[in-house]
Nucleic acid binder design. Structure first.
Lengths: 224, 224
DNA sequence: ACCTGAACACCGTTCAAGT
DNA sequence: ACCTGAACACCGTTCAAGT
């Protein structure tokens, strides 16, 4: 009379799982960098074949989005200020901080400017805060987009720098190219040449973000 | 007594040339898109072999930079306003307009945030205008960088959209994903869902740029 | 149901040889 | 000097077959 356990399995028991695949992918990402993460390399890491992976993820893009998803959901979710301008800035900052640890995802995200669901609360907060700042919903989306472009750009260039570091910097450095410029036609660039690398390597994301938010708010807000 | 012509050629006469290679590359770019431009495809276009190309360009990156170079130098160079804020904005706008026609270059440019020499006058003008706005050279470079990130981000996402269009849009659209959100936890996103695509497809680069410039100037400028 | 092997249709680039 | 062919060391993905 005892019924057969309803969750009876059929077929071969799985050797791989999404979790195992994601864990292996994270290992490669951490130890060898995003450029080394290929379906073939990942299969090797799991002592499996490339094709076995396609039983657990639809394609490589889905794999990358799953990685972002797990990274974003593990990220500590900070208290946001109640005051709208501060909330907008703080939310945008979290967005940046989450993605700064996986800039390789921007290439995937760029295809359609949207996100992992576990990061959607950030977008919601940004738009809501912008509306509370006195903007229309349409303007709020526009503010969100400008900030997203800024963030995506910073990440793209961050990724480029990382790649460059990985390729061991054998190419002539930009400082030299700048120093070689004719100071008659490029006075500013020529005089800045020696300090260029230092200037462009400093992290100024946050100040830029604040300035952008304030610029947008003053441009759009009805002058009360 | 007549000396032998000093430019006497030795060896085999060239069948390929940089110009021919660049022209063919531009043809592929225009007709089939940036994704189709590979060294092998380019060789085929020229009825040659992939390896013949390496006699005229160092590698694929150099080829892409040469393409940018020729594109940028052909671009009409507009009069810039004398007034510094306007000049800063106008220069940044040209930068954007030049690159908007070849967003695929951003991946290459991103490796080190610098340019084709025939676009350097823009950077020079941006930094010079920022200094004339009352900023220090260091602040001016920082302003340039924020604008460059914004521009690079817009281009990256533009490229993504183009790629998406090329892959024939067979994936479920974001509007659906947004509409499926719980309006209790994502009230803003849920209510915007139906208009999302339209809102995110409109070109708002210029307004964003102006707002960013003004935001940066008010944040940095000594309150006179 | 889950996994394997071989194959397809590509990449960028190096190297040794040909004219 | 300029070009070719074959090869190296990869990609993501599909398809037919195995257990």
């Amino acid at each position: 009379m005892e019924p057969r356990t309803p969750t009876r399995r059929t077929g071969r028991p799985p050797r791989l799982s999404r979790e195992a695949i994601l864990a292996a992918a994270q290992r490669i990402l951490g130890e060898e960098g995003a450029d080394q993460l290929s379906m073939r390399r990942l299969a090797k890491e799991l002592s499996s074949t490339p094709m076995a992976l396609y039983h657990h993820v639809r394609d490589k893009d889905e794999l990358l989005l799953l990685l972002l998803e797990s990274h974003a959901s593990a990220f500590p979710r900070p208290e946001l200020p109640a005051e709208p301008r501060g909330r907008l800035i703080a939310a945008a900052q979290v967005l940046h901080d989450i993605l700064a640890e996986c800039p390789w995802i921007v290439e995937v995200l760029a295809s359609d400017d949207l996100f992992a669901v576990s990061a959607l609360w950030i977008v919601e907060n940004m738009i809501d805060a912008a509306v509370e700042c006195g903007l229309t919903p349409e303007q709020a989306v526009y503010v969100y987009r400008v900030i997203w472009y800024y963030t995506a750009g910073e990440l793209t260039i961050r990724l480029g720098r990382e790649r460059r570091r990985a390729t061991l910097d054998r190419q002539p450095h930009r400082t030299q190219a700048l120093a070689a410029l004719d100071p008659e036609v490029f006075p500013r660039l020529a005089s800045l040449a020696s300090g260029w690398d230092e200037l462009t390597n400093t992290d100024t994301h946050h100040e830029g973000l604040v300035a952008i938010v304030d610029g947008l708010l003053t441009a759009l807000r009805p002058t009360a």
